[in-house]
Amino acid sequence: MPNTEEQRLDLIENCTLLLEGPLKPFKQTDNTAEGRMITQCQWLKERAENHDLPLPVKEGKLGSLLYIYTNGELFTATSTKDEIRRVETMMQRIIRLAYKGQLLMKPPYIYTPYALRSIDALITVLETAPRPLSQYEQGLIPDLKEIKQLLDEGKIEPPLGAYKPRYPNFIKAERSIRDIPNGKDYFFTVSDLIFNGVRPDSWLTVEDADRDTRRL
């Protein structure tokens, strides 16, 4: 599992974005979700700044973040969809960095060409499958082509987690595709890149990503 300078800086950046943005009007206290999130972000940020935060961070240290994120505790009835998406993306990136120890598939899309190769590889896996495809697996192929085009044109920005229901074939094919050679690995790589906003652990650098995807 990677534990890189890039992750450390990404973690500091996303904690700062939360602390200086949506959490700025609130005070640090345990009585409120916002106050608790301030404690959480400050703790992560200070340790990351002091080079004292091995990844992944123990789950017991991230309980507030995970609960507040899952139950939408930072948002009120007046929160807009854009605001929710923006804040959730920051929180999800912290979760993926700190809780999972993963590498972000982040702007300015320097990893996009390699994500496109990965999508092509999954399409090929499906088109050359040794058994007839289910209706969902068949439906996944045009979905993948659409996502590839949107990503290439910069019209979508990972993570697209909450948008998964727009691609029901992605949900239905997740289990069935596992018996197709390379199906599971390629599927999860693409799913992570697009819906979870993270890249494979082996893509430490652009060169690594290029090497890993050139022969797919």
Binding site: Y69, T70, Q92, A162, K164, P165, K172, E174, F188, F195
Partner: peptide
């Protein structure tokens, strides 16, 4: 999340369909 029990697989798929992202599905 990559080796869920059959029961959890069914629940996870239903939660996916409701529109929850993978991190929230895992927490639920």
């Amino acid at each position: 999340m990559r080796t869920l029990s059959p029961e959890d697989e069914v629940a996870a798929e239903a939660l996916d369909e409701q529109g929850w992202d993978k991190d929230k599905v895992e927490q639920v």
